[in-house]
Simulated scan of single mutants.
Amino acid sequence: MSWIRNAWYVGATSAEVGDAPLGRRLLGERMVFFRDAQGRVQAVEDFCPHRGAALSLGRVCKGELVCGYHGLAMGGDGVTRSMPGQRVGAFPRIQRFAVEERYGFVWVWAGEADGADTSAIPVLEWHGNPAWAYGGGLYHIKADYRLMIDNLMDLTHETYVHATSIGQEEIDETPCTTRREGATVVTSRFMERIDAPPFWRDALAAIGVPEDTKVDRWQICRFSPPSHVLIEVGVAVAGLGGVDAPDDQKAYSIVTDFITPEADGSMWYFWGMARRFRPQDAALTERIRDGQGRIFAEDMAVLEHQQRNLDDFAQRKLLKLNIDAGGVQSRRMIDELLAKEACAQVV
């Protein structure tokens, strides 16, 4: 197992868990999410204790999960409540998972449910804040989740993979710095007096700044365990302080990347962008979401082919350059926490 268990991962968006159960494989476990009678999200293993049917193929009735095979009713605590014409008091309890609905996401704890600490869920300052707007989506990617972390902590690939949207030569030409801040790895790049690439020219036009204006551009990538990457990105009219420029002279956003392993070699990727300009413009939110979706689809194609190569050429050793420092440090942090969990299990 290559992922940390005692941590919170995004398992679904709130919108995905509605009237019907949602089955999803996460962290090597088959889970089913549903809402109880109070509307709270619950999660149990996707396994009916009667004949092993998938509970996710059933329905939700009065806050209980009803198996679509023989009508067994399951509670959010993993205890069978009833079954037509049968006595179920001796049925074994199935595994439940700790979940917390927050910021429009359903967070799931991969370790023992009783050890879940909700204070460890990242704080998303923009959620519910009228000064911000958010749009995002979900991709299922057939690649190891750590490849996505590598990708996000080294944005030099933008020049090549995203040449028609956010890429530009200045990314290659400007060195980045990498450091650890407590439990966070930070990789930063600041570009000065450059032309904005197409995606950011559109953002400048949205705030009334001429598209041909010289800009200062920033990329500040922050990895935090188990597999979250938040990236401050944007452009500002050159010479006004970059990321600290006045709000009416910059397009400032945070790219959100919540990466949840499905199993070895596959992941669920919850992507989005929170922006702090023109927050009430719903059409702009949709346009940015569509553009960002196309950008991340390009990443998905690269990563899935990369995974196939790594599988086929497993004997090859990969090279590490200075641009890889963010990914290398992030993987090192993951390995440290995995070793810590392993030692705790031995004790």
Rank of each mutant, 00 (worst) to 15 (best):
M1W: 02
A15L: 07
V17H: 04
L26I: 14
L26Y: 07
V32H: 00
Q38K: 03
G52Y: 00
G52S: 02
G52F: 00
A53L: 02
L57Q: 06
C67Q: 08
M74W: 07
G76P: 15
G76H: 01
S82E: 06
V88Y: 10
I94P: 00
I94E: 03
A98W: 02
V99Y: 09
W107L: 01
W107F: 09
W109F: 15
A116H: 04
A116S: 05
T118N: 05
I121G: 02
W132I: 06
D144W: 09
Y145Q: 05
R146V: 13
D150V: 09
D150L: 02
Y160A: 10
Q168A: 13
I171V: 12
P175K: 05
P175V: 03
T177F: 15
R179W: 04
R180F: 01
T187P: 00
R189I: 09
R189N: 03
F190P: 04
A196L: 03
A206R: 04
V209H: 12
E211S: 12
D216E: 00
D216S: 00
D216H: 00
S224G: 13
S227G: 09
V229N: 03
G234P: 06
G242E: 06
D244V: 03
A245S: 08
A245Y: 03
K250E: 04
V255D: 15
T256H: 09
M267R: 02
M267F: 05
W268T: 10
Y269N: 12
Y269G: 13
G272K: 10
G272W: 03
A274W: 09
R278L: 08
D281V: 03
A283M: 07
A283K: 15
L284H: 15
E286A: 14
R287W: 08
R289G: 04
R294W: 11
I295Y: 11
I295N: 11
F296Q: 00
D299M: 08
A301L: 12
H305P: 07
D311C: 04
K320M: 10
L321T: 14
I323S: 12
D324F: 12
D324W: 14
A325C: 03
Q329P: 01
S330T: 06
E336Q: 09
E336A: 09
L338Y: 10
A339Q: 11
